[in-house]
Amino acid sequence: MTTLHFTEEQRDCLQELVNVAMGQASDKLARYLETMVHLQVPAIKLVDTQQLPEHFAKRYQQQSVSLISLGFFGDQGLRGETIMLYQLANVGVLAKLLGYSDDDSSEDEMLTDISSVLTTTFLNGLAEQLDNSFSYAAPRILSSRDEHFADKLAATAQQWQLALQVDIRYQLTDYSFHCDMILLIPGEAVLRLRQMLDQILADF
């Protein structure tokens, strides 16, 4: 069991940084999809990585889910991995909207493209507010239309100590599109992140 935790002030600070970064990512997604995105309060939660697979297996019971991963590396030891989880109920509509053909390889390509847009914009927004800068690894498909995706999530998550779970619900104007974002970060990066949040809080 990890002893890493955030105080309420640190959590509020991180929630606001995430909110601003998500706003930038949503704007980018809206422009990409040429539609309006209804933005909801992004709920953030720090969880032990061992809890993640069960949590998401429950949330997406017997549904096909695709997982796309993107590694990031920042200054001062801030690094980690984002995982986007896509529920695939409305993916066909998205594919049509974006002009992708209706086959599995195009679906993977489309989700990889959307993940790149969302995660790099989000992480750039977060890095800027932390006075940091990130570089990125190429996106990886961890799981494609897989009902047993939790095993793949477990295999990746166990390499990290802590997960910042960010629940994102994108409601597009004419249809529903839902995905989740998880930030996986090692323990030393959580400590560094806490110091950065304390510096921001000290300014206000």
Binding site: V20, M22, G23, S26, D27, M36, L39
Partner: peptide, 24 residues
């Protein structure tokens, strides 16, 4: 707000907001 989509900025101005300022 952090919701900087042009459509949202237009919507709040139509609802009577004086100005829109991006967060932070």
């Amino acid at each position: 707000s952090a919701d900087i989509q042009p459509e949202m900025q237009k919507r709040v101005m139509e609802l009577g907001a004086l100005a829109f300022i991006q967060k932070p």
